[in-house]
Design a protein around this nucleic acid. Structure first.
Lengths: 250, 250
DNA sequence: TGTATGCGTTATGTATACAATAGCTGCTGA
DNA sequence: TCAGCAGCTATTGTATACATAACGCATACA
């Protein structure tokens, strides 16, 4: 036992996993770069065993890739990989919305979603939207999607959606939003909010096909959003993905 | 270093993972049962570190569940969980088929699929189908789906589909097929083969919507298939899933 | 007799020691 | 001067030892 300072409130494995994911999503570890276990031990403060467990988890999560000769490297993604992931998540969310509509949802279950919707409306009412409001939006929007997903009452589907969201929508510790991109972002978010409204309405009226269709349209909007963010080098709520895209265009 | 007999041709972690997955899918470890690390060490022949890595991987895969107080248990699924997983996979495969159709696929890329199709035709030509032929079908069908998935040219999507397939379609070491269920199974497989034909045709003609629709229809057939298998207590190609469904109906 | 507390046992979480392999560097020979 | 081989080093894979926490059982007290 070393004289290492240990925080017993949370498991070393979880601590290491969070720290490493943060390093990856923040860009401290660059795409394609090999991850040194020893270095990870130093930066995370955990010993090799929990670090290795964290690495395995991150590999399964899709952020790391095993190197045949041993060890792991940060996985690199193309722009298309990210846009495919967004469309993929939209497709899954479409299925979730369909399930929710077909299986029926009580008014009480829809309540939190409507509250979320109202809170977002309030943020978007500001013209132009402030950086702080945009930041709150990211949180509220994630909450809305999580709640919507839950309405499907399908644990396997919820699980897959979480997985699919990890890549394009993971939240790093902090993020930057260019001031100049705000008005354009707001335009897009207002359209997105319409989608949110339609999907709730469709679920309430048990229109599965319509609920599904709007979520897929929603994803296509997010793809356009990504293209815009890449072109302007600004970050909408898709920012974490940017750290993962390999710089050399292939 | 113990006098343990070690097989250096394959990593201990992989060995342990395969052995444990087999134990779960074959039903040797029952749903809801806690997995003892020490016991796993004995049955797999690996030491605790690789066993723990394997357990983490299987948890991420969705076959195990972490117990809050520590350790892992075999995850239990309801019948609906499995049928949702099938529908989920079908939805993802639908997206893959759409991508393939929209992005275009050369004749050379379609060749292996057509060969697969012909091989299955030959098997299904036998009336009634033999157990051995049915077993070959399971392999060929898995190959067909894997090839189709690849046509999407989308690594993130392929990855998710693999993930989604793990639960309902994983291949255990051996499986049993009741003789009496064969004719009914053959009927279903002939319809399934029609779907295969349609999806290839749609991809060739770049009809994305049609390609997607037929894969979703294909999934609905598989769901009916599952219901049948459960009712008759027979195993079609969905067998591994049966080991995971909790016996006590909740 | 039932419940609560304390101790012991067992299993998991963590750390580290050991083994093996892959990659690199330097040297030698053609 | 370049290529190939050998030895070394660094890093990963594996095993095990140690620490800690949880569960069960027994005993004592109400």
């Amino acid at each position: 036992m070393a004289e290492r300072e240990v925080d017993r409130s949370v498991s070393q494995t979880v601590k290491a996993q969070l720290a490493l994911r943060d390093q990856i999503l923040s860009g401290a570890l660059r795409a394609g770069e090999r991850i040194s276990e020893l270095q990870a031990v130093e930066t995370t403060g955990a010993s090799r065993t929990p670090v290795r467990m964290a690495l395995v988890r991150l590999e399964e999560e899709g952020l790391l890739e095993a190197i045949p000769s041993g060890g792991f490297m940060v996985k690199a993604f193309s722009e298309r990989d990210i846009s495919d992931s967004i469309e993929l998540r939209g497709t899954l969310e479409g299925l979730a919305a369909r399930f929710a509509a077909e299986r029926g949802v009580s008014a009480r279950e829809l309540e939190p979603l409507k509250e979320c919707l109202a809170a977002i409306d309030e943020l978007l009412g500001q013209v132009p939207i402030s950086i702080e409001a945009f930041s709150s939006y990211v949180t509220l929007n994630a909450r809305f999607h999580a709640l919507l997903t839950e309405l499907s009452r399908s644990p396997p589907l919820v699980r897959q959606i979480d997985r699919a969201s990890a890549l394009p929508f993971a939240s790093p510790s902090g993020f930057v939003m260019a001031q100049s991109a705000l008005p354009e972002a707001q335009q897009i978010l207002i359209i997105a909010q319409d989608h949110h409204r339609v999907v709730i309405d469709a679920i309430e009226n048990r229109e599965g096909a319509r609920a599904e269709a709007v979520m897929r349209e929603h994803a296509r909007l997010a793809v356009r959003n990504l293209r815009l963010a890449l072109r302007n080098r600004t970050h909408l709520d898709l920012l974490p993905a940017l750290a993962l895209i390999k710089t050399a265009t292939d």
